[in-house]
Deep mutational scan, measured.
Amino acid sequence: MTVLPKDIPGDSLKVTVGTANGKPGDTVTVPVTFADVAKMKNVGTCNFYLGYDASLLEVVSVDAGPIVKNAAVNFSSSASNGTISFLFLDNTITDELITADGVFANIKFKLKSVTAKTTTPVTFKDGGAFGDGTMSKIASVTKTNGSVTIDP
C-alpha cells in the first residue's frame, strides 16, 4: 500500500482569532474563523484551546458560528481559569461536516476595569488537533492569535 501526501505544500487550514475593542463593562464579541476549508477536504472534527487573561476578560458565552451545522449536538465549549476549550465533531461522520469558510465560534467577553488603554492577547495554547471530512488528521493548520483592547 502506498500512502501519498494529501496536502499540497503551502496549503493549510487557517484558524484565526479576531479582535475587538471596548470600554470597561462593555461586552464584545471576538470571532474565531476558519478559511481554506474546502482545500483541506472539509473539517469533520477539531479540538483546540485559547488562552486569555482572566483578570482583564470575563467569558460571558461561547457560541457556535454559522458554519457549524447542528451545533447543539456537534459543538461544545467550556471556559475557566483563562482557557477556553473548543470541540467539534460531526456526529453523523459525513452529513454535518464544516464545508465552508466563515465564523466557527463567537466568544463574548465582558471587559474588566483598567486604568490605561490595554491590549490583551487571545492566543492559541498547545494541544488539540483538526481532522478532515474523512477524519484524517489535517497536518497543516495555520493559527493566528487575536486580541481585545480595553480603553477606559
Rank of each mutant, 00 (worst) to 15 (best):
F88I: 04
L56K: 05
V60A: 10
D53H: 10
P24S: 11
D132H: 02
K39T: 11
S140H: 08
D26K: 09
G44T: 01
G25H: 14
T134V: 05
A100P: 05
T16N: 09
T134Y: 04
G44F: 02
F124N: 10
D126P: 15
G146E: 01
G131L: 01
D26A: 12
K125M: 00
K23T: 12
D151S: 15
T29G: 14
V122T: 07
V141S: 02
A105N: 02
L50V: 08
V30W: 12
T16D: 07
C46I: 01
D90E: 03
N47A: 01
G102E: 04
I84D: 02
L87Y: 01
D53G: 10
D95R: 01
N81I: 15
S140G: 12
L4Q: 11
I138E: 01
K39C: 13
N42C: 08
A38H: 11
V141Y: 01
L87W: 03
I107M: 11
D63L: 12
D90G: 04
K143L: 02
K39S: 11
D126F: 15
V43T: 10
L50P: 05
K69S: 11
F130H: 00
K117A: 03
N145Y: 07
N106M: 04
K14N: 09
G18K: 12
T29C: 09
L56G: 12
T45V: 13
K6R: 08
K110I: 04
K117S: 05
T134C: 14
T99C: 05
G65F: 13
P5S: 07
S140V: 14
I98L: 05
S147P: 04
S85A: 14
P5F: 06
T144D: 02
D53C: 06
L56A: 08
D90F: 02
A35R: 13
V17N: 01
G22W: 08
S61G: 14
A105S: 09
S78Y: 15
V148C: 08
G131C: 03
N106K: 07
V122C: 06
T92A: 03
P31D: 13
G10D: 07
T92C: 01
P121N: 08
D63P: 09
T92P: 06
S113R: 09
A71N: 12
V28C: 08
C46R: 03
D7Q: 12
D132F: 02
L57T: 12
V37I: 12
V103S: 06
G128F: 02
G82W: 15
N70H: 13
A72P: 13
A20I: 11
P31T: 12
E58N: 08
S77R: 15
K14V: 09
G102A: 03
T94Y: 15
D63S: 14
K108P: 02
V17D: 05
V28A: 13
K39L: 13
V28E: 10
S12V: 11
G51M: 12
I84S: 03
P31N: 07
T83D: 07
D101H: 08
I8V: 12
L13D: 05
D95N: 05
D53A: 10
S85R: 01
T16S: 12
G65E: 09
T29L: 12
G131Q: 00
F75H: 10
V59K: 08
K125I: 03
V60D: 12
S12G: 12
N21M: 10
T134K: 11
D7M: 05
L13P: 07
V43M: 06
M135V: 03
S147T: 06
F48R: 01
T83E: 05
D101T: 09
F34D: 06
T123E: 03
Y49G: 00
A129Q: 00
V73I: 14
A64G: 12
T45A: 06
A100W: 07
V73D: 12
K23E: 10
D95H: 03
T19Q: 12
A72C: 13
A35H: 13
T142Q: 07
I93A: 01
T118S: 09
T115Q: 09
I67F: 10
N74H: 00
F104G: 00
K112I: 04
L50G: 04
V68T: 10
T2R: 08
K125R: 09
D7R: 14
K110H: 03
P121E: 05
M40Y: 09
A20L: 13
T119R: 11
A71M: 09
K23L: 10
T27S: 13
T33H: 10
I93P: 02
F48I: 04
I107E: 01
K23R: 10
L97R: 03
A105P: 01
T94W: 01
T144H: 05
I138T: 05
I67T: 10
T119P: 08
P9T: 13
N106R: 05
N74E: 00
I107N: 04
T149I: 14
N145W: 03
V122Q: 05
C46Y: 06
V15S: 08
G131Y: 00
F104L: 03
V30R: 07
N106L: 06
S136E: 00
V68F: 08
V3H: 11
G102I: 12
D132Y: 04
L13K: 10
V68I: 11
F130E: 02
P66R: 12
A64L: 00
T142Y: 06
A100R: 07
T118L: 04
I150Y: 14
G131I: 00
S140N: 05
N42L: 08
V37P: 12
I138R: 01
D11G: 13
T83A: 09
T27P: 10
T149C: 15
T29R: 09
G131K: 02
I138M: 09
N91Y: 15
S12W: 07
Y52Q: 10
P24N: 13
K41N: 10
T29H: 10
G102C: 06
N42I: 10
T29D: 14
F109K: 00
K41V: 11
K108Q: 06
I150S: 14
T144M: 04
N42V: 08
V59Q: 11
T142G: 03
A71S: 11
T27F: 11
S147A: 06
V32E: 06
N74I: 01
K23N: 11
T2K: 07
T45C: 07
F124K: 07
S12D: 12
G65N: 07
T118Y: 08
D26L: 13
F88S: 03
F104D: 01
N70P: 00
L57F: 08
D11N: 14
A116N: 06
Y52D: 04
K6N: 12
V68P: 10
I8H: 07
V141G: 04
A79F: 15
T149F: 15
S147M: 06
L89V: 00
G82H: 15
G102M: 15
N70K: 09
Y49S: 02
A105R: 01
A100N: 07
F48D: 04
L87P: 03
V60Y: 13
A20G: 09
G128T: 02
S140M: 09
V60Q: 10
K110G: 02
V141H: 02
S140Y: 05
L13N: 08
A72G: 13
T2I: 11
Y52C: 10
L89H: 02
G127N: 01
V43S: 09
